[in-house]
């Protein structure tokens, strides 16, 4: 009995738990089951979902990328400087995303060519990128000067913000890339057993570099979407964004050891955390306690992951 339940629980556990939380909140919480509330949750999660779907791919490839926070903070600073200078929101978007691509590719090269541990490498690049953010913004808040820049994420189509639509598109791309393409298979292979992948003709360094570059690009887009939502960007050296991203990936059940995981898991993980916070807010739970509980949930998720891995399925 356990033999069948365990793998199944491991496979779909996070989805079941997320749905259960949804039902629980719907039954017990006033104001939860409203269109406005759902739209709000979607809109708030858009930046995180964009970054987390590609962070999932990096983690499956065996990398641990914490530079997403710095890119998230700094890409919109570059974008807004361009926007302020040229008034061209489209160009600003492209520049913001390009900043992410450059940082991500650099991370990938440092990790594969110099063989630096990816956590350390991305920690180091994070500091450099945060620094660049202060330089480019002259240490001040940058604000959108046109109506076009806020429109990137704030336009509503069928009641849903474009920020959420962009997130949906990015999630779909990451999902298909990972589950249906050769590149996706190679990502799993590289993270699962790099030497075996090499002997099967996979270009291990190339696959990893691309994974990091894509994650950087997604983080850049996430930053632009977020700044478009809030109409401004602030230079900082705040790592909190990436912790939210990693929490979503790990709570979803993607293995921090690499080789195992899925984009849908990250989506489920992200919504689990979002619903939890939403429920806390609706019940007016003290934000400080929210943190404590959120931490406990992440710890539980990772413990379950390591526990199930000790047992061969």
């Amino acid at each position: 009995m356990m033999a069948q339940v365990l793998p199944a629980a491991r496979r779909y556990g996070i989805a079941v738990v997320t749905v259960a939380l949804f039902v629980l909140l719907a039954a017990t919480t006033d104001g939860f089951l409203s269109q406005a509330n759902f739209r709000n949750i979607l809109d708030q999660q858009s930046a995180l979902l964009i970054a987390a779907s590609f962070a999932t791919i990096t983690m499956i490839a065996g990398g641990f990328d914490i530079s997403a926070a710095s890119v998230f903070v700094v890409a919109p600073l570059f974008a807004l400087q361009v926007e302020n200078a040229t008034g061209n929101a489209g160009l600003a978007l492209v520049v913001g995303v390009a900043v992410g691509l450059v940082v991500g590719a650099a991370n990938g090269l440092v990790v594969t060519a110099l063989k630096v541990n990816s956590f350390i490498a991305t920690l180091a690049t994070s500091f450099m990128v945060f620094g660049a953010g202060f330089l480019i913004s002259d240490r001040s808040v940058l604000r959108a000067s046109t109506d076009a820049y806020p429109a990137i994420a704030r336009t509503r189509w069928w009641g849903i913000t474009t920020g959420a639509w962009i997130a949906a598109g990015v999630v779909a791309v990451a999902w298909i890339l990972l589950s249906r393409t050769r590149f996706g298979r190679q990502v799993y292979a590289v993270g699962g057993n790099a030497e075996a992948a090499r002997l099967a003709g996979v270009h291990v360094a190339r696959v990893k570099t691309i994974a990091f570059a894509l994650a950087g690009t997604a983080a850049g887009l996430a930053g632009v979407v977020s700044s478009s939502r809030t109409l401004s960007a602030l230079p900082s050296d705040d790592f909190s964004f990436v912790f939210g991203v990693i929490a979503a990936v790990v709570v979803g059940g993607t293995s921090i050891a690499g080789g195992e995981g899925a984009v849908w898991r990250t989506i489920a993980g992200a919504f689990f955390i979002a619903l939890m916070i939403n429920g806390f807010n609706l019940h007016q739970v003290d934000p400080i306690w929210q943190r404590v509980i959120q931490g406990a949930v992440i710890l539980a998720a990772v413990s379950i992951d390591s526990w199930t891995q000790r047992r061969p399925t």
């Binding site: 799993y188 292979a189 996979v202």
Partner: peptide, 25 residues
């Protein structure tokens, strides 16, 4: 082998190009 990956993925890994379609594998 990639121990935690399915038999299918382990078997086809070097030859995925053969199954390439317009929408992935």
């Amino acid at each position: 082998l990639m121990a935690r990956r399915p038999v299918r993925d382990n078997t086809t890994l070097p030859y995925l190009r053969r199954f390439a379609g317009r929408l992935g594998i």
